[in-house]
Design a protein around this nucleic acid. Structure first.
Lengths: 209, 209
DNA sequence: GTCATTCTCAATCAATTGATTGATTGATGA
DNA sequence: TCATCAATCAATCAATTGATTGAGAATGAC
């Protein structure tokens, strides 16, 4: 892992957080191609040299962004209580979460997409992204496998392949020119049918065999 | 559209083709972020100034790459005879084509992915990519709609949503760490089940209700 | 108060990069 | 033979960009 500076002071932490936020906003806006240290510092409201004091190099900055993404990813995951729900219900929650992020925090996806592109050429980035990607994929695999076992989904559904289709479909909705979520909802409904998941139950999260 | 130079001579065409090929190889290798005019010229075996003589600016170069991609895309599409085939068979051909490109011409996908990213920020690129993207999507929509009408697919399959799922799933296989095509084949098989498409017929392209 | 530590910035550096210049070559045709 | 023009390149420019320097503020400990 690339070491950040050891300024573990409250000020340093606050600055680094501001720098990470500024960098993420700029990456979402212009991609890595147009990412300039001067612009990051300007958006964070500090001098370039101050930025280099807290984040010594651009490489460290990218690592910082990767860590920032991972923190958000984990926080977002932990914010979902799913105990006691059926596999089908959890899958619907996954879809709802994606929809929510897609509408209100799309920069997260944009930055993630940029990082994934960059990961193909930079092993450090790849190492930072793999856990997130793997975790997400495995999570869907687990949901599908459980759903098959419990009869929520088609009996011949392949969880591994299903997870790739599921994630690919959701991410694919963002390539679609339709800016509204109407198309997303159609895709979500089609996924449900494709997985043999019945129509949305009339909200009885307790009633479970 | 960004005008290229008007050197419509045989030499000029050859040079521009070589420059486009060199640029595509470098984009596939390092992305737009690491694309340098010097490197392109070097890989094309010419001087930087010569390159600027044939392709006046980097912007024109990107447009040239976009056009080169579109040419390949169209050529690849026209190379497929599909007359007289059922919708299900055509969908299988689509999958086989994708698999083939994925294995033997992956740079095409890499460059396309880079272009799609860049298209989000550059309206000129977006304008060049939209027709390809739209054409591909519409093609799948048509196949699915026909297949539903002819009974090849599930009767309640939504062609629009299905196309997004289909393309997203195929593209999603390239995010998967598995370098072999084993996972791709599982995804393809799962798509077939999800769309209600029966197992691969024993090659009787005439026998159709 | 004073000293040390943390933090900040204007100014600057060295390297990179897209693009231009001006000279040269070679083919074509009058 | 000479004029013309497409094509090519070495050398160079001007701007950009990641990073550094050195000189102060701000803060807190004693």
């Amino acid at each position: 892992m690339i070491a950040c500076t050891d300024h573990n002071t409250p000020t340093g932490d606050r600055r680094r957080a501001a720098i990470a936020a500024a960098a993420r906003a700029l990456i979402a806006e212009r991609g890595f191609e147009g990412l300039r240290t001067r612009d990051i510092a300007a958006r964070a409201g500090i001098n370039v040299a101050t930025m280099h004091y807290h984040v010594p190099s651009k490489e460290a900055l990218v690592a910082l962004v990767a860590q920032s993404l991972r923190d958000d990813f984990i926080a977002q995951h932990n914010a979902r209580p799913r105990a006691g729900l059926s596999a089908g219900e959890i899958l619907r929650l996954e879809i709802a979460d994606f929809r929510e992020t897609r509408e209100h925090n799309i920069d997260l996806f944009r930055v993630m997409a940029e990082m994934m592109e960059k990961a193909r050429r930079d092993e450090n980035i790849a190492a930072a992204m793999r856990p997130m990607q793997g975790f997400w994929h495995r999570q869907i695999v687990d949901i599908l496998a459980r759903g098959v076992a419990e009869g929520d989904f088609r009996a011949d559904l392949d969880p591994q392949a299903g997870a790739t289709i599921f994630l690919g479909a959701l991410i694919g909705t963002m390539r679609h020119p339709d800016p509204t979520s109407a198309h997303f909802d159609r895709v979500a409904a089609e996924i449900a049918r494709a997985f043999g998941l019945g129509p949305s139950q009339p909200a009885l999260p307790v009633a479970k065999a």
